[in-house]
Design a protein around this nucleic acid. Structure first.
Length: 596
RNA sequence: GCGGGCGUAACUCAAUUGGCAGAGUGUCAGCCUUCCAAGCUGAAUGUUGACGGUUCGAAUCCGUUCGCCCGCUCCA
């Protein structure tokens, strides 16, 4: 169950303490855009820096035990518009939506994700059903491919399908396009369970149902009858409309059709477009990866759930290039590596899961995809933080085709070895033509296969915020249990690593504390606080998730009766335990616990 | 896009039938305080989202508009 009360408390805290603000708040805000305040920026930066450090600078060893080759990149947000034609975003990143006009229904349907069912007046024979299934399978596959490939002219693609369907459908005339069902049920309809489903849909009547894409059904409504809303069941659907999710802008001061450009909807295409540059300049060899952290933009139909679905968001993406025969090994590697990264940083509970996508969910070019998902307090279901996708060589193929450039990888090492082996065996030297012939294809020249771990930085930040929020009880000075709000960030992610307090504002304690504070701030984010009672200061730091509080007391300054002169207390946020540490060792003590 | 809900201090929320815009928390200043907030004193902060209307008088009623939240839907 969604815990809205929890979410409201977290959102209030984020505002009150300066983690997250609404964008342009003084003007009433703007939906789908958010600002990170002084603490939020530290938290998000820590997450991005960790990612960069753990994935690019010092990645774990590969599945073969060898060092991983990873390099970084920082691409522009606006690219040549042809990029988006090649990637499929220009054509396919637009969802055909259809709304129901019934007063109390108003359902909104993704037309490409729904299929219609038609019923035939006469029962079919087993052979006819088999034939029907085969044809349907083919049609559905083609339709899905057309959608995911982002065919530039979806209309004509649909018409082709309809013609094909009509040719077949002279077998029987459908009675009525009755309902719309989710694509996940399509397998059931198009395969052997026809009769079972038939019963489910039309009781014990003998009509045989036939399913086909919603858009096709809509176009054929004059022949087959009206398409009904899946929710209210009435024939009240409006004309399907395109929802384009690309942000548009213009280059140059004069706006014309040809000046139109797009803000990138993902950082990945910048990597693919620079893949050849990286190969040519940085001495990397396959397998290797390129990582990038950067903003991306999508005109979400309806941004919701705090920062979870923003229209401007930040991604942390890797494109890992490898040989196709090793690709499933690398896919497994990245799938596990990325999941472990989250658990190591504290998303360790049952709220985090690794889920393999089903065949239905996969894009047509994708061989496998795993989602790393988090159960946010605002949702009933797990939501995606990151997708690790096996993309085959789809992207590079597309860019090679559209740019006209050869994006093949040439394995110089393997080629040299091949030539040397021939020589050793005393085989005759190859002619120029033979060399071009053999060296011009696999295994020496080929388009690499790509594994893409693509993480949402803002989603990750939000997940870490949700995971950190705790209310527990701690005793006050009278020993009475009091509720306290504590953000239990992993020390590596905590926006403030430590706070320095003088126990009281006299006897030289402020001076000593200030000196320690200034020394620590050279290497980490620390705060100095002398305001109010010590307990109040502890609670303030608990609320922003500072893992360690250092107090300068009588012992530190060697007051009369001190048994541990020159030591401070370091209080731990989660356990409330205190440690006595020599003031000169504080920095080392903290660094040991916070890590690099 | 459609439907519903809602806009009062930094946060959480009051304000009787239309009658002087308030409280708690937080923040700031000072005092007190030798280790876990709700000790003391004081202070600042509001064109009640905006515009218009009704009225002697509007946070409150009406209209318009802007924005936010929820549902349908999408996704990193």
């Amino acid at each position: 169950m969604a815990d809205t009360a929890f979410m409201e408390k977290l959102v209030a805290l984020c505002k009150r303490r300066g983690f997250i603000f609404q964008s342009s708040e003084i003007y009433g805000g703007i939906g789908g855009f958010w600002d990170y305040g002084p603490l939020g920026v530290e938290l998000k930066r820590n997450i991005k820096n960790r990612w960069w450090q753990d994935m690019i600078v010092n990645p774990p060893a590969g599945p073969d035990g060898r060092e991983l080759e990873m390099v970084g990149l920082d691409c522009s947000i606006i690219m040549n518009p042809q990029v988006w034609v090649a990637s499929g975003h220009a054509g396919g990143f637009a969802d055909p939506m259809v709304a129901c006009k019934t007063e109390n229904c108003n359902a909104l349907i993704r037309a490409d994700q729904f299929f219609c069912v038609a019923y035939f007046p006469v029962p079919m024979t087993g052979t006819e059903l088999d034939e029907l299934s085969t044809v349907l399978d083919g049609l559905i596959r083609k339709f899905k491919q057309a959608i995911s490939a982002g065919v530039e002219n979806g209309e004509s693609e649909l018409e082709k399908l309809i013609t094909e369907f009509s040719a077949f459908s002279k077998l029987q005339t459908p009675l009525l396009v009755k309902s719309v069902i989710a694509s996940s049920e399509i397998e059931a309809i198009a395969s052997v369970t026809l009769t079972k489903l038939e019963r489910k849909l039309v009781g014990e009547s003998s009509k045989s149902p036939l399913a086909f894409p919603f858009s096709a059904a809509y176009q054929m409504r004059n022949t087959f009858g009206p398409v009904c809303c899946p929710r209210c069941g009435l024939a009240s659907l409006a004309t399907p409309r395109q929802f384009n999710l690309m942000f548009e802008s213009n280059t140059g001061a004069v706006r014309t059709e040809s000046s139109r450009v797009y803000l990138r909807p993902e950082t990945a295409q910048g990597i693919f477009c620079n893949y050849k540059n990286v190969l040519d300049t940085s001495r990397v060899k396959i397998p290797f990866g390129i990582g990038q952290v950067g903003k991306a933009f999508r005109n979400e139909i309806n941004p919701r759930n705090y920062t979870f679905r923003s229209r401007e968001f930040e991604q942390m993406e890797i494109e890992f290039f490898c040989r196709d025969e090793d690709s499933m090994m690398w896919y497994e590697f990245w799938r596990n590596t990325r999941f472990k990264w989250y658990t190591d940083l504290g998303l360790a509970g049952s709220k985090l899961r690794l889920r393999d996508q089903t065949k239905d969910e996969l894009a047509h070019y994708s061989r496998a995809c795993a989602d790393i998902e988090y159960l946010f307090p605002f949702a009933d279901d797990f939501q995606e933080l990151e997708g690790v996708a096996h993309r085959g060589c789809f992207d590079l193929t597309q860019h090679a085709k559209h740019s006209g450039k050869d994006l093949n990888y040439f394995d110089e090492e393997g080629w040299a070895k091949f030539l040397a082996e021939r020589k050793a065996k005393g085989e005759p030297e190859l002619t120029k033509d033979q060399k071009a012939e053999i060296g011009g294809k696999a295994p020496y020249r080929f388009l690499p296969t790509v594994i893409e771990p693509s993480a949402g930085a803002d989603r990750g930040t939000l997940a870490f915020l949700c995971e950190a929020y705790h209310e527990d009880t701690a005793p006050d000075e009278k020993g009475v249990a009091q509720t306290r709000v504590v953000m239990r960030f992993h020390p590596k992610l905590a926006p403030v690593k430590a706070a320095v307090f003088p126990l009281v504002n006299k006897e030289g304690m402020p001076e000593t504390a200030d000196k320690l504070y200034k020394e620590l701030k050279r290497e980490m984010v620390v705060q100095y606080d002398d305001g109010g009672a010590i307990g109040r200061r502890y609670r303030r730091q608990d609320e922003i998730g500072t893992p360690f509080c250092i107090t300068i007391d009588g012992e530190t300054i060697g007051a009369a009766g001190a048994t541990n002169p020159g030591t401070v207390t370091i209080r731990e946020r989660d356990s409330l335990q205190q440690h006595r540490v020599a003031i000169g060792s504080v920095k080392a003590w903290l660094k040991e616990r916070i890590g690099d």
